[in-house]
């Protein structure tokens, strides 16, 4: 089942999402990238109803890109997250709403700080030091509460993330096999091999 994790460190945000694309009990694909790069310093991991997820993520991606083209600078993480939350909240109150859960992580180049936002399909948003969606969150929340260091180095952050992923693999009956991991910092977005 779908799992996504994210955590902040001293000057970076780590975002991880599993790579399975499933329909009912069948795995259709095992190399799906469910983390979109919205702008040079902004990442969004998405999970939820298949179909809704990609449709909504692309809508967000293109609108954030449009703002970047129009204004020459991209939205700051805090503003982008607020706008995304609003898009979900408005969708929820329409006839057909998007059932999508998000982790938005970004690095604010204006004040050089990392930011992470936990957003669910009801339009709830919380600013958090670490976050998870899916069944993995039952293991990750307590593990990261114990092992997460908000001022940690990238290596420390990766260790904490490995713990969360390994525990999920060990204990969850329907655990996903593979994850994509991305980090965003002052230099932009990079893919990391765990």
């Amino acid at each position: 089942m779908e799992c996504s994790f994210a955590l902040t460190g001293k000057d970076y945000v780590l975002v991880a999402a599993d790579t399975t694309s499933a329909r009912s009990i069948i795995k259709m694909k095992v190399d799906e990238d469910k983390i979109k790069t919205l702008s040079p310093h902004l990442l969004m991991a998405y999970s939820g109803e298949p179909g809704d997820t990609v449709q909504f993520a692309e809508y967000i991606e293109r609108n954030i890109r449009l703002y970047h083209i129009r204004n020459l600078y991209p939205l700051r993480p805090q503003s982008a997250a607020s706008w995304i939350r609003r898009a979900l909240a408005e969708s929820l109150r329409s006839r057909q709403s998007y059932t999508v859960n998000l982790l938005v992580g970004g690095f604010d180049t204006a004040d050089k700080t990392p930011h992470l936002y936990w957003i669910d399909y009801l339009g709830t948003m919380a600013t958090v030091p670490f976050a998870a969606h899916g069944y993995g969150s039952y293991f990750a929340s307590s593990l990261l509460d114990r092992y997460h260091n908000p001022d940690g180095t990238l290596e420390e952050g990766l260790d904490a993330l490995r713990r969360a992923i390994d525990e999920t693999a060990k204990r969850l009956v329907v655990s996903p096999g593979k994850y994509t991991v991305k980090v965003v910092d002052k230099d932009g977005v990079r893919v990391i091999d765990l």
Binding site: N71, R76, Q78, S79, A80, S82, W83, R86
Partner: peptide, 11 residues
């Protein structure tokens, strides 16, 4: 309301 930030001056 949309972005939860003060509007940039040029905008």
């Amino acid at each position: 309301l949309n972005y939860n930030e003060d509007i940039p001056v040029e905008l």
